[in-house]
Simulated assay, not measured.
Amino acid sequence: IVDYAVAPDGGSLALSVERLDGKTECFVINRSFASRGTPDYNVVRSTLRSLSQNECEEIANHLDRLAVEATSIDLVADFIKTLKAQSSKGQNI
């Protein structure tokens, strides 16, 4: 985990991780006031790619292993929970 932040838009969360290929990928949970009541609310997006149902589950599993080492365990746990929920919806984002 490289960095994390909470946005002043109503509670969106950002989590940047270093991938095995050396690239930094940022995941954002959209919790902005503007997105409430829309299908975009509480959806995780990546800055590098669209996320399939399987990729959400895979990322959640990787983060679950990192959560033990993370200094921001609550934030990582929130990403894990949201990614798992997104993976069960069966939609690509």
Rank of each mutant, 00 (worst) to 15 (best):
V2W: 09
Y4D: 02
A5P: 07
A5E: 04
A5F: 02
V6S: 13
A7R: 01
D9V: 00
D9I: 01
D9R: 08
G10I: 00
G11A: 03
S12V: 00
L13I: 13
A14C: 06
L15A: 01
L15W: 04
L15F: 02
S16E: 03
V17P: 11
R19F: 03
G22R: 12
G22F: 08
K23L: 03
C26Q: 14
F27Y: 04
F27T: 05
V28E: 06
V28G: 08
V28Y: 06
I29G: 05
I29K: 14
N30I: 07
N30R: 02
R31T: 00
R31E: 03
S32V: 00
S32I: 00
S32A: 05
F33G: 09
A34V: 15
S35P: 15
S35M: 10
G37Y: 10
P39K: 11
P39T: 07
D40W: 09
D40A: 06
Y41H: 10
Y41E: 02
N42V: 02
V43M: 03
V43W: 01
V44T: 09
S46Y: 04
S46C: 14
T47K: 11
S50G: 15
L51E: 05
S52I: 13
S52E: 11
Q53I: 11
N54K: 14
C56N: 05
C56F: 04
C56I: 05
I59Q: 11
I59R: 05
A60Q: 12
N61I: 15
L63S: 06
R65S: 09
L66F: 03
L66P: 10
V68C: 09
A70E: 13
T71H: 11
T71A: 14
S72H: 11
S72A: 06
S72N: 12
D74E: 08
D74H: 05
V76Y: 01
D78F: 02
D78V: 08
D78T: 08
D78G: 10
D78E: 03
F79P: 09
I80L: 12
I80D: 15
K81H: 12
K81P: 08
L83K: 06
A85R: 15
Q86E: 01
S87L: 05
K89F: 00
K89C: 00
G90V: 03
G90Y: 01
N92D: 14
I93E: 00
